[in-house]
Amino acid sequence: MFKILERETLAEHINKFVVEAPLIAKKALPGQFVILRLHEKGERIPITICETDPEKGTITLVVQEVGKTTYELGTYQAGDEIADIIGPLGKPAEIEKVGTVVAIGGGVGTAIVYPEAKAFKEKGNYVISIIGFRSKRFVILEEEMRKVSDELYVTTDDGSYGMKGFVSDKLKELIEEGRKIDLVIAIGPAIMMKVVSDLTRPYGIKTIVSLNSIMVDGTGMCGACRVEVGGKTRFACVDGPEFDGHQVDFDLLIKRLAMYKEEERIALERYLKERGKA
């Protein structure tokens, strides 16, 4: 059992949990993820680690409520326990000094790009961060991102905060201004990572993305998370989750992410109905 020490609602439907997991806290590096299972009847879902505190033995997870499991997790309070947390899984991000790094976070992806922006900054890179949200009420980790970035831009789809538009619009501006960019890290919804990768490809700007495939075991055993990168089948759980965005078949990823759409709807509706009764 893994005890939740702190819980905070960062924005509508986005919750932060600080969880006691000493083994994972000691080992985890930016870019790695955990698999969690809430209880005996729960499913196993991958969640990328936002922060760790090896001394306190805690990890921080930022989770958006999108399906049954994440809605249910949203009801967990400090003191509650999560049945299983397994990790750290996947390969860590490659953090090197390359010059100027643009760190892009889309929605809850901001929580994942945050430790990487921080690590790139600590390596001595010039870090430009662009974080984008649907609307002002969904904005998260703005202050944290500001602290680890040389420049920070916030975009909202509806213009209610920061620049109106998508993260890719801001990136396009930077590229067109002639800013020298050595590396782009883009983490967020698959469609956003696809758009960013398509944007940087003609300029030859190396672009790394973190793939959020459906997983079961997370250790290479089942192949649920398979993706195509450079025409080859790879497992996001052990070969990734980070890959060269220019090589990823995003259309396949998007289709595979929707494989259980119907079941996800049934499970969520059933859960919310039961919760409504309680």
Partner: peptide
């Protein structure tokens, strides 16, 4: 492996009582 893990370990045959689906 995936088909059997979903079925046996995760009890997908009891979906939606258990959370893991299978197609």
């Amino acid at each position: 492996n995936e088909f059997l893990t979903r079925t046996n370990l995760m009890k997908a045959y009891l979906f939606p009582e258990y959370d893991t689906p299978i197609k």
